[in-house]
Design a protein around this nucleic acid. Structure first.
Lengths: 337, 337
DNA sequence: CTTGATTGCCGAACCGGTTAAGTAACGACG
DNA sequence: CGTCGTTACTTAACCGGTTCGGCAATCAAG
């Protein structure tokens, strides 16, 4: 298959290369008649623009970058990432933008990737996930002049464009939910506090439980099923055990439920469990798990759209995507006795 | 940050553009002294090649493509995909290859994506997952001349390069496992039979159970937790229920376990459950799930390496990655009574 | 009828690399 | 000493687009 270029189109349409370019890009400078003729020829020849050539001259790559600084294990376990990527893709595909995905092991490697991408002019913008408190990626991206949309709270986004969900309200709702059921001893199995969203939830959890005079305990983990299980075991075998546990993801909640059952206890009779990030999993355990639900796919789509807007000249802004909704299921109940 | 090009390096090193290119690419045509000088200047200026320019002239994009024709929901639920992508990345990152990921809704869209990529010269090769029986992607990729490594059995790869795991042996081992525990009525909750690996397992399941004179039943689903749960419910509430169920992924197995519990039954006492694709999930249910384990991340890495080899001129071959290993856990036991 | 603005298109430069072809300098050799 | 073959470069074309300056032709205004 001989590749078809605009030069070939120009030859067949009897115009110059430049005119063809104008015609194909809907730019002024050619008559409607010529434009139609060129488009027809391009159609017939099944012309597709060569990305490299376009990128080289137009200095746009029509590609967004996404770096995931997590282990392959974590990525496969956490439904969040793939759902998010799927959402991003759903928007990009329509604009025929591509997504460059890079999985790295650490934050420094993530920074190096941005530097490389910026130097290579490989991406037009990046999507930054797992936002941290005092995130070193923010000053770097600023220095590199790489357009970016951060996934995280405006309070830690330092004025860059970001899309966030209201973790504070969500956590408050979760705490109020268990309190309204009568629980007074509530535990929180959290992720790593370096992560911005965990930090936000830590604050909200502390504030809400103080306000409601709850007796609380917080355990920080690495988000893994293993540590979620270990934390649950420690909590449930301690002298005074909590009657409700709020988890920072659903994987830990599922693992926690297994530990509860293994200890011969039952949810919700012995303990109320609340998961975060309501994936299918939460609807397919026994009992089904109460969860903080958010539309991850939609979240990804929103972020992608905001990055497109940013490149179209929109001012960097903070956009509230949604407030997660608490879905009450069978793992919620009054405290024992 | 003014971008640094080879022209700038040439100026500073006092040689021509061409010489710089030879020096930087370790090609003959420059003296060692000049090469060293050029490399030093490039180092100092922190030069990074512009991908578009290189791609345009060298006709290589240093990018591999991966199309996933699944819904975002499925992708996020199935740990397979993200784990696989992680494995692919681990190899590509070392070679500074990039991965173009595209999520589409259907097989026709996947075909269209290949056509587009081929026309745009966007990728040097593609990785094809979810191989089907009589897969229409095979003739298309052949026609487009797009190098590809298929993830699936050689019997349906039609001579193209592929990497496979021995699903037949694995299924045989699974059936022998439950048979050796004394089970005579065994069910299989399978995925969609269009998928090659499901088809292979269907054959193996039928053959093994015939050989062992087992009484079997096969239910095909779409791999989702919902259908896995529904299939399990149907099986377990029928007149004669199976005493062992083998699932085609772990999500359905977990959902199946919940259904079993919901029906007031217990595993393994009432039913033995075997999952496929041993993710973390299987180790964090109660009881823990017996599963067919394979190293998904390693699988992805192997596939990526084979595609690199293919571009280096290796003959298209079938490579056996590994035979999945049955990990026996608490959901395995003798049949009731 | 001249002037000036507008329209529609051409030609050429340009993006930043790779690479084929050409050339000057040098040493080996008959 | 003339010739040939290497070596070490330079020059220039090329990849396939975008975009700018210029130039006729057309048209309205003065």
């Amino acid at each position: 298959m001989a590749r078809v270029t605009i030069t070939e189109i120009a030859r067949r349409a009897g115009v110059s290369k430049g005119a063809v370019s104008y015609a194909l890009n809907n730019q002024p400078g050619v008559s409607e008649a010529t434009r139609a003729r060129v488009l027809k020829v391009a159609e017939e020849l099944e012309w597709v623009p060569n990305r490299a050539a376009r990128q080289l001259s137009a200095a746009r790559s029509e590609t967004f970058g996404l770096v995931l600084a997590r282990t392959a294990k974590t990525l496969s376990e956490e439904p969040f990432y793939m759902g998010f990527v799927g959402g991003v893709e759903s928007v990009l595909a329509r604009k025929s933008y591509a997504l460059a995905l890079q999985v790295v092991a650490s934050l420094p490697e993530e920074l190096a990737t941005y530097r490389k991408w910026a130097a290579e002019r490989r991406v037009d913008g990046v999507i930054v996930v797992d936002l941290r408190v005092d995130d070193p990626r923010i000053p770097l991206l600023r220095r590199l002049g790489l357009p970016a949309v951060l996934v995280g709270d405006p309070s830690i986004a330092d004025g860059m464009a970001c899309v966030w969900t209201d973790g504070t309200s969500a956590m408050t709702a979760a705490v109020e939910h268990v309190a309204s059921l009568g629980h007074r001893r509530v535990a929180r199995v959290a992720g790593t506090p370096e992560h911005g969203h965990v930090w936000i939830r830590d604050q909200a959890f502390a504030a809400a439980s103080r306000r409601l005079s709850l007796d609380v305990e917080v355990v920080h983990t690495d988000f893994s099923a293993e540590e979620g299980a270990a934390a649950t075991r420690a909590l449930m075998t301690a002298g005074i055990r909590p009657t409700a546990i709020v988890y920072d993801n659903d994987l830990m909640a599922v693992a926690g439920l297994a530990v509860v059952q293994e200890l011969g206890l039952r949810s919700p009779y012995d303990v109320t469990l609340v998961a975060w990030d309501d994936s299918t999993l939460c609807r397919h355990t026994h009992p089904t798990l109460t969860a903080m639900s958010q539309n991850i796919v939609g979240y990804g789509a929103e972020v992608a759209q905001r990055l497109l807007d940013l490149l179209d000249g929109a001012r960097p802004q903070a956009h509230l995507y949604s407030t997660p909704l608490l879905i009450v299921r069978d793992s919620s109940g009054p405290p024992p006795r």
